[in-house]
Nucleic acid binder design. Structure first.
Lengths: 341, 341
DNA sequence: TATAATTTCGCAATCGTTTCCGTATTTTAA
DNA sequence: TTAAAATACGGAAACGATTGCGAAATTATA
């Protein structure tokens, strides 16, 4: 791999010193317009590309953001990253992307690796296994810029971007009740997860507001393995107090539910109405029947994370990321899976 | 952001020179076992993390791989990256991930940015717009390690990983014919794409082998915008010589076809049988009717790309990546969308 | 015992930038 | 006309690691 020209060679060609060339390329006021032109044109001619590591070493920043998330095959996370990339790319930033595969040990390893400054900031959504958050707390205490989205750590005082989890779950559950549901199931990944807690609370409060009492056996905590989830849901669906409605707090469990239903003779929406947090609109419309979704503003969440970070990182002497919770509302899109017949 | 301890501070604490400490940490034969122990334990105690940029600058390598692909919201590409990450993470490599959004201009920008050595290698799948490949050729001519997967550049002499596109398309088309189809449509993204060419060839040859002649109006070239694709497909499906079978060369066009069919009263598989290159098995099973798929070994492709790169990058004085085409076969999974009634 | 070989470590250069100084030249002000 | 200020540039020190080379201390060999 033949490395290109460096600053010294470029300077030699121009019969200038490296410092002058550097300043010229960085548009310093100390350099005359005339020399700037010369330098810039010669740099183009010789295809000079500054070495990013020399620069990072000197400036102590990498122009790189790390994104850590639980899984890649999820339209929600894909769209968030698209949103982040859209903003960061305009500022010349690069994206390191890591998947924890819902494994807290991998999450710890990744976070610890990132503490050496390879990235200027971390945008993350924690794994469903994450209960001990000391690795993240340590990162933040050291002053490392850290932003959470979706699955947040409440106790770490930094900026977090979420959707209106509580209200959406409340409204979604209320919608099921309005459609006549009385025994409503709730599917979740892990009780530790911030999104689980909030969405669950919204679900419970909606039940309470309607004078309904929750049935413990209808609240299913799932795991990572899809087949196990499908079977757990199927059993719940066929249990004694089988539900007539179902709220899924994450996309993948809605899909698991459709799989589970296929293994029974339950009819949606006649026997069971389903609503789910879901980001893949194209798929939602193709499911049979089409799925009523609580659609999170995934792309916007990514954009907002990135905008905040860019402000903090590209301007000098910015304050720490404020300890705030920013909520961007979801939209409920009613489709066939909850239409009363 | 308070940077941690560096080598000099660690050395001072140990009353040793930085060079000795560096060698001790790198397990050099020149250092006694005794000092090694001391150094390592002190490094742990002080939580020493080597500065990656200083190291990269000195060693002229970044322990980073760049992955450039056309889109993120695709189960195929997601799985490929999961495969790559699985291997590279074990070697301590990091992943920079870029999406071109099927835009060749963005692809060029990204590739040019990567020429400065920010990554040690690039794994890429070109955009559907890419016909001029000079940006990639230049990269390769400079000796930059470059690997293609799926959507390859035939003319660039490096290693490419694909699936058996021709054979799979041939077998898939043959399957439709065996199920009684006579007028078989073909959906593609861009005629420039390597996968389009090969899969199209397989499709044509299968027709020919059965004594069928292709109908030009049944061969639809689609673009990026989903709604436009759906409408184009719908029109084709309702045209005079409407098809009774359809091969989709990529996942998203199969979904578009399902959407298009929903807007007509065409019945699958009675009126139209569908087969598609498709990686999202969970979704394939949930479509109505479930979709017969040509399932690419996405994860394995990613793993193989990464394995080859790791061999090249982690061992000293490796030869250039050989000019070879490695094909990993797909599997055809027959579901309801092609079952004759 | 004297010399050679081995072990173990330190000094200093290096990677390619940026930037703090210093300085020569030109312009402005008094 | 002279002093002060502004302009335009170069020298050299950083940033934090790795490594070639030299040297002291120890061990082996003759």
């Amino acid at each position: 791999m033949s490395t290109g020209v460096n600053l010294k060679e470029l300077a030699a060609e121009l019969k200038l010193s490296p410092s002058t060339v550097s300043r010229a390329l960085n548009d310093s006021y100390e350099i005359s317009e005339e020399t700037k032109k010369k330098v810039v044109s010669m740099a183009e001619k010789m295809n000079y590309q500054p070495n990013p590591f020399a620069r990072s070493l000197r400036e102590n920043k990498s122009k790189t953001i790390a994104v850590v998330m639980p899984e890649r095959m999820s339209s929600f996370f894909s769209k968030v990253i698209d949103g982040i990339e859209e903003v960061t790319q305009q500022h010349g930033y690069h994206l390191l992307v890591y998947s924890t595969h819902e494994d807290v040990e991998r999450e710890k390893k990744i976070v610890n690796l990132l503490m050496n400054g390879r990235a200027d900031a971390i945008v993350m959504s924690v794994s469903s296994q994450t209960s001990d958050i000391s690795h993240l707390a340590r990162l933040h205490e050291r002053g490392f810029p850290l932003i959470f989205f979706d699955r947040i750590c409440e106790s770490i005082p930094t900026t977090k971007f979420i959707t209106n989890d509580y209200e959406s779950a409340f409204e979604g559950t209320k919608h099921l009740i309005q459609q006549g549901c009385r025994r409503i199931a709730f599917l979740m990944l892990s009780k530790e997860l911030s999104i689980t807690k909030e969405r669950y609370r919204g679900y419970l409060d909606a039940l309470k507001a309607a004078g309904l009492s929750p049935t413990p056996s209808l609240q299913v905590t799932c795991a990572h393995e899809e087949e196990n989830n499908i079977e757990a849901i199927r059993k719940m669906l066929l249990s004694e107090d089988r539900p007539d409605g179902l709220v899924s707090s994450v996309e993948k469990l809605a899909l698991a539910t459709y799989h589970a239903v296929k293994r029974t003779d339950i009819k949606i929406p006649e026997d069971l109405k389903i609503i789910s947090f879901f980001s893949n609109l194209s798929i939602a419309g193709l499911l049979t029947p089409s799925l009523t979704t609580i659609t999170q503003p995934a792309f916007t969440i990514g954009e907002e994370c990135a905008k905040l970070l860019m402000k903090k990182l590209t301007k000098p002497r910015q304050p720490d990321l404020p300890n705030q919770l920013i909520s961007i509302p979801s939209k409920i899109i009613i489709r066939s899976s909850t239409i009363a017949v």
